[in-house]
Simulated assay, not measured.
Amino acid sequence: MTKRVVITRLLCTLLCALALLFPAHAFAQTEELSWDQLFRTQIGEWKNTIVAQDPQFGEWKNAEMEVQTLGANQHQWLISLSLGNKQVGYMVVGEVASVEKQKKFVLLEYGLGEYILFDDAFAPREVAAEPVYDGFASHWLVTLPQAKQVVDAKTGERYLSSTRPDDSIMCTLQEQDLATAGQKLLASRIIRPDETDPFDNISWFTPLVLSETEVPPSQLTWDELWQRKSDQMTLAVRLYHAEVLSPYSIASLHLWNDQKSYIGVWDDGLRFLPYAYANKVGKIHIQ
């Protein structure tokens, strides 16, 4: 009798332990699936609203999406869109704490064309290459035996060994600067439908140089930019502690819910970034 009691108690203990273990595991798995479903639903909604409002994104309509994580613990994801064997664009999505202290998905950047950010075709071959996203300054940071090297995330260009990244500008943006979950693209304006080389007209260069020694001109407000009729506008950006000068021809403007604005530039395809970010890193020149 005593042996049966002992065995029964051991069996009960084991069953209780299993009962406690499996529900917890099932809950964790359900929670993870819910996050993944929420994420994929949101990027699908953003994809659809961009297609609906901007005819330039027609190829996105039937494109398949592939998700990859950018860096460790950065809460950023690259979504590449492909149609058949052809890349047709990308999105960069982040996760930030909202005013309600809840995590929210935000749209950091999106682009149209064959050449996406962090494309494997341009990735450095070194094993220790970390993808770092920061708008125009996005790069791979390659660890070499004697130093670190910056490799451009769009073109694969290797900068000088002395080149050092700036402190992240993109991470300083607030929730009110970015399209968030549930928001839609409301209006778009195409300024230059064809890709243009900003070096075809370098009138933007002199004001940029003068602004280093004189009081820089006030930046255009979004309303002023939207109403300008010129199709000759350039966004000139200084990167990596002003060692790299990157001019971009302005191509399109996008307006989302709650006045969330994005500026589109030509850069081997179209790149849309928050106007609040563009104001921090560059100056707009109108020819």
Rank of each mutant, 00 (worst) to 15 (best):
P165W: 04
H139C: 10
Q149H: 08
E126V: 03
V132F: 06
T206L: 14
L112H: 01
D152H: 09
I116D: 00
A128I: 12
S162H: 13
M233F: 03
T172D: 08
F136N: 01
T206S: 12
I191T: 02
A153R: 00
A121S: 14
R192T: 15
R192N: 12
G156E: 07
D194A: 10
E214G: 07
I190L: 15
T221S: 15
L160V: 04
L112K: 03
H139A: 06
C171L: 13
S168Q: 13
D167E: 12
Q176E: 15
E157Q: 14
V142I: 12
G135E: 03
D223M: 06
W226Y: 12
F199L: 15
K229V: 07
G113H: 02
V142M: 07
A129L: 04
A123C: 13
S188Q: 12
E212G: 12
R192G: 03
A128G: 02
S218D: 14
K229M: 08
L144P: 00
T172A: 04
S203G: 13
L235I: 09
E224S: 14
P131D: 05
D197P: 03
K104I: 02
L208H: 10
L235K: 03
K148M: 13
S188E: 10
E175F: 01
E109A: 08
Q149Y: 08
E224C: 05
E130H: 07
P165H: 07
Q232C: 00
D200F: 10
E109C: 01
S218G: 11
W226F: 10
T206D: 12
T234E: 07
L141S: 11
V151K: 02
Y159D: 05
E126T: 11
P193A: 12
E157R: 13
T155I: 11
P216A: 11
W226R: 03
W140E: 05
E195N: 04
F105E: 02
K184W: 05
I116W: 00
A129P: 04
V150D: 00
A123Y: 02
D200V: 10
M233A: 11
D167S: 12
F118L: 10
D167K: 10
A123I: 05
L108G: 01
S188T: 15
A128S: 14
P216C: 11
R192D: 07
A137V: 01
W140L: 07
M233S: 10
L112R: 02
P217I: 06
H139P: 06
A181L: 08
L185T: 03
R192P: 00
D167P: 03
E224T: 13
Y133Q: 04
W140Q: 05
A121V: 13
L235R: 02
F105N: 04
D223Q: 14
M233K: 07
T143I: 13
T180K: 05
D167H: 09
K184P: 00
A179V: 11
P193Q: 11
D119C: 07
Q176V: 10
T172S: 15
E157S: 11
P145H: 09
L220E: 05
F136T: 02
S138W: 02
Q149V: 15
F205W: 09
